[in-house]
Simulated assay, not measured.
Amino acid sequence: MAPQKAAQEFVGHKLLDREGNNVGRIEQIYFDDRTDKPTWVSVQTGMLGRRHSLVPLQGARVNEGDLMVPFDKERIKDAPDLDVDRHLSVEEENRLYRHYGVQVPGPRRGMQDQGDAQGRHAAGAAEETGMAGRATGEHGTDTRAANARAMNAEAADARTAEADTRSGRGRADAMADEDITMVRSEEQAHVGVESRESGRAHVRKSVDTEHFEQDVPVSHEEIHVERVPLTDEDRATAGNAQIGEEDEEIILHAERAVVAKETKPVEKVRISKEKVTDVQHVEGELRKEHVEVDREADHLTEDDYRGRRRPPAG
């Protein structure tokens, strides 16, 4: 992740904790002022993404297009709340490193500038000592070396006196400015709601078989034999009847119950979701800063107090 272009490609991707849990969306990538290497990443956390957390990129690795860091989700969410839209100071960086338990990588910029100044001062002293040594070698005597050491001592005394003067002026200014201001901070709770899956309902139709019974009236035909006397007309029609065999067939009919099935829609079932509002109790702990003033022991004597409170003459 050394090139800036490659690091910027992760903006908008998910930031995963060491267990692979989604922490939030990556907002910005921060680069070191001295090395131009990606050092910090800001991510949206909290309810509805209202909070922004800074996470160090030490030990980060790519996981399926997203970025995974070696910290758990709770530690990231509890990181110090800083303004992510401005340049981070050295104190803020050290505070974040302490929160994540990460060792501060190398000297900070202010410490490096101070070390460079000390190095230049040491180089100048060595140069002066070298000049004194060369003078001693040329003339075979240590008079010039002694003079050089005396001049260096006087210059050092002058610098010390000047520093003491500046320090005295600073103490005098501090004593003159008796008002001391201190900012007291406290945590405020922003309570919101988030939607998450609480269950699922499966809607399906099933077929059940029910037994039914019903009495159905049916009819059938039977043979009925009836003997009736002949009429004159029958005798005239028959004429000379002859005796012989004769065979006739009669078809009988009978009714039976028949069941026919037919599918018809009988009702419509509508399935919908209904939102029910309930009250959930939320509690937690908020930290507040308290300002206490410890008065140091007064070194003034009673005579000094009397001298201070003595009314003016006249």
Rank of each mutant, 00 (worst) to 15 (best):
V43M: 00
L82R: 09
D66Q: 07
G137H: 14
D81E: 12
P3K: 08
K14A: 12
N22P: 02
G20D: 02
E248D: 10
V259P: 00
Y100L: 07
R287V: 15
H253I: 08
K273S: 09
V258L: 07
G192E: 12
G140C: 05
H211D: 11
P105T: 14
A189N: 08
V279W: 01
E138F: 06
R306I: 01
A313F: 04
R134C: 04
P107I: 13
L286A: 11
D298T: 10
L96I: 14
D142R: 11
P80C: 06
E274I: 07
Q103L: 06
H202N: 08
R295Q: 06
P311I: 05
D234A: 08
A123H: 11
F31L: 08
G59D: 07
R309K: 10
W40Q: 02
R227W: 03
D81G: 10
T209S: 11
D179H: 07
A236P: 00
E249K: 07
D232Q: 10
T237W: 04
R75E: 04
K273T: 15
G239P: 02
D294V: 14
K205M: 05
R75M: 11
T277E: 03
L48V: 05
R98T: 15
D32P: 01
H139Q: 06
N240E: 14
V225N: 14
P3R: 08
G307E: 15
P229G: 12
G101R: 04
R287D: 14
L82W: 05
E187Y: 09
A156W: 06
P311A: 06
F10T: 10
H87W: 08
K275L: 09
M175T: 14
P311Y: 06
P107Q: 09
R95Q: 14
Q8T: 12
D173V: 12
P265W: 00
E302S: 10
D66P: 05
Q8N: 15
S206D: 13
E296P: 04
D33S: 09
G140E: 04
L57P: 01
G46E: 02
M47N: 12
A79K: 02
H13R: 15
H253W: 03
P38Y: 00
N147Y: 06
L82F: 14
P312H: 07
H190R: 09
Q242G: 13
R25F: 11
E19L: 03
E194W: 04
V282R: 08
R149C: 03
E210T: 12
V104W: 07
R235T: 05
S198Q: 09
G192Q: 10
A260M: 06
A161L: 05
A189E: 11
G20H: 00
N63A: 14
V41H: 00
K273P: 00
A153C: 03
R166M: 05
S185C: 05
D304A: 13
R310V: 13
M182N: 12
V228Q: 11
D164E: 13
E255N: 07
D298C: 09
A155P: 02
D36F: 10
E274S: 13
E194C: 03
D247S: 12
Q103D: 08
P105N: 01
R50Q: 08
V203D: 03
V266R: 01
A135F: 11
I251Y: 02
G137I: 05
G170R: 15
G65S: 07
E19G: 09
R295P: 02
H99L: 07
